[in-house]
């Protein structure tokens, strides 16, 4: 299934998130991830939504989002250059003997050690989603105890 990243600027008041998630639920659209937070203007929140679906579905998603009264603007990133990042925390089993190897691997990805315990290490990594995915694949064999992903945030590159 194709995924597409869209950014939605909304009025920052209670209930807006439920309108957006309700729209996806009632019309049967699938969300891969959704992040939300304030913007440079406190009265506006920005959501980054990764949606599953073909072109026709995405077209409807964008139109239906625009139809919501609290939605100020919908940006479909398709075909335009974007900066995208995701943040993860991951706790990995580690023993005395494996610790060095794991840290070395994490280093290659630019992941930082967030906490070291007796039998585990917790890493933090902020990177584009595909790099995050690669890191998870390679770290998995060491035993992932807990993994949290924030979901993607994305911003168009500034016009030159």
């Amino acid at each position: 299934m194709n995924t597409r990243t869209i950014s939605v600027l909304v009025e920052n008041h209670s209930g807006t998130l439920s309108r957006i998630s309700g729209l996806f639920a009632s019309r049967g659209y699938n969300i891969s991830s959704l992040t939300v937070g304030e913007t440079e203007d406190q009265s506006i929140s920005r959501m980054t939504i990764v949606v599953e679906g073909d072109d026709a579905i995405i077209e409807q998603v964008v139109k239906q989002l625009n139809k919501l009264i609290d939605v100020i603007k919908v940006i479909d990133f398709e075909g335009s250059p974007v900066i995208e990042r995701e943040f993860i925390l991951v706790r990995v089993d580690s023993t005395k003997s494996s610790r060095h190897e794991i840290v070395e691997l994490a280093d290659l990805f630019g992941a930082k050690v967030a906490y070291v315990g007796a039998s585990s290490i917790t890493f933090e990594l902020c990177a584009p989603c595909d790099i995050i995915n690669d890191f998870i694949v390679l770290i998995k064999p060491y035993g992932v105890k807990e993994l949290i992903r924030t979901g993607k945030v994305a911003m168009a590159q500034a016009r030159k």
């Binding site: 026709a56 077209e59 409807q60 139109k63 239906q64 625009n66 139809k67």
Partner: peptide
């Protein structure tokens, strides 16, 4: 008048 009605 409703853009979402178009090509739905």
């Amino acid at each position: 008048i409703d853009p979402a009605a178009i090509s739905k």
